[in-house]
């Protein structure tokens, strides 16, 4: 399935990314609350890219399993990577003084969440939301 790639280089790209995400979620028939969940998650992931890596990409994709449709959101950067992923995923933890409430929130907003990170190479966050 086609991918929508949004380059994240500055704060305006954050708005663009979440608008694209919301639009795609709407087209797929997600309800209003799920549209907001998806768009907010994209916003947080894009903000993390700006804060910690400087630049990267948000990639949106329509997905399908046997029974339902969904949306996949990936955030990819080649920044410094995350040293302690368990810590980064714990609530209330942030290295940026409360900007970007971080990954635990995104994990709650989406249905599936995985992260791979290597120090010095970058981080990939992959999340999915399925239509109910």
């Amino acid at each position: 399935m086609d991918e929508i790639i949004i380059k994240i280089r500055n704060e305006w790209d954050i708005v663009a990314a979440r608008q694209e995400g919301r639009q795609l979620a709407k087209e797929l028939g997600f309800g209003e609350v799920d549209q907001a969940r998806i768009a907010t998650s994209i916003s947080e992931l894009a903000r993390n890219i700006i804060l910690y890596a400087g630049e990267g990409e948000i990639i949106l994709q329509t997905i399908q399993n046997n029974t339902k449709e969904g949306i996949k959101v990936r955030a990819i950067d080649h920044g410094p990577g995350i040293k302690d992923i368990t810590l980064a995923l714990s609530d209330g933890y942030t290295t940026s003084n409360g900007l970007g409430s971080g990954l635990p929130g995104v994990k709650r907003l989406m249905d599936e969440f995985s992260i791979a990170s290597k120090v010095g190479e970058g981080t990939i966050v992959e999340t999915r939301k399925w239509k109910r």
Partner: peptide, 9 residues
């Protein structure tokens, strides 16, 4: 419709 953590803060 949407407020992310930065705007909320």
């Amino acid at each position: 419709d949407i407020i992310d953590s930065f705007i909320a803060k």
